[in-house]
């Protein structure tokens, strides 16, 4: 399960990832992190079985948690060229055996592929 975590100046001062890990004993894998002086935004991955527990632990620390259950959306315009494949930071875009380009569930919605698509077939879910 992927979570997008947003936190404000209060929570940003606390080592929230370590606190949650100690409290839940769950392994938290940081996929992307942008931490500034006043707010931070992280994308983390945890095992599905502990997802609820981890989510609650983050919320208790004042972190806004959003489950990333959707992935990049693709229109009929896609020609399966693959320009997006090597741009994906988490290797969520693959070429299938039959030559089709597929998007795996581990998409972190970074939007990099949306910007390189030559036929504008990709978009971030609303």
């Amino acid at each position: 399960m992927l979570f997008r975590l947003k936190f404000d100046s209060k929570a940003v001062k606390k080592p929230v990832i370590s606190m949650v890990t100690l409290k839940t004993s769950a392994l938290v894998n940081i996929i992307r992190a942008e931490v500034g002086p006043r707010r931070g935004e992280l994308i983390v991955e945890v095992d599905d079985e502990v997802a609820d527990k981890v989510e609650n632990a983050f919320r208790e620390l004042g972190v806004e948690v959003c489950r990333l259950e959707k992935k990049v959306e693709r229109s009929e315009e896609c020609v399966h060229c693959g320009a997006c494949v090597s741009i994906c930071p988490v290797e969520a875009i693959v070429v299938e055996e039959d030559g089709r380009i597929e998007f795996l569930d581990k998409c972190v919605l970074c939007g990099n592929c949306v910007n390189v698509c030559p036929v504008r077939a990709l978009s971030l879910p609303v």
Binding site: C81, G82, A83, V85, S86, E91, V94, V95, G99, I101
Partner: peptide, 25 residues
């Protein structure tokens, strides 16, 4: 190239095709 990864200076580098084998088929 079609395997999706090539080595450059000892590092594995990811590869994007730009032509569509799917539509060529």
């Amino acid at each position: 190239l079609k395997s999706g990864k090539v080595e450059i200076n000892g590092e594995e580098v990811r590869v994007s095709p730009l032509s569509s084998v799917y539509l060529a088929r």
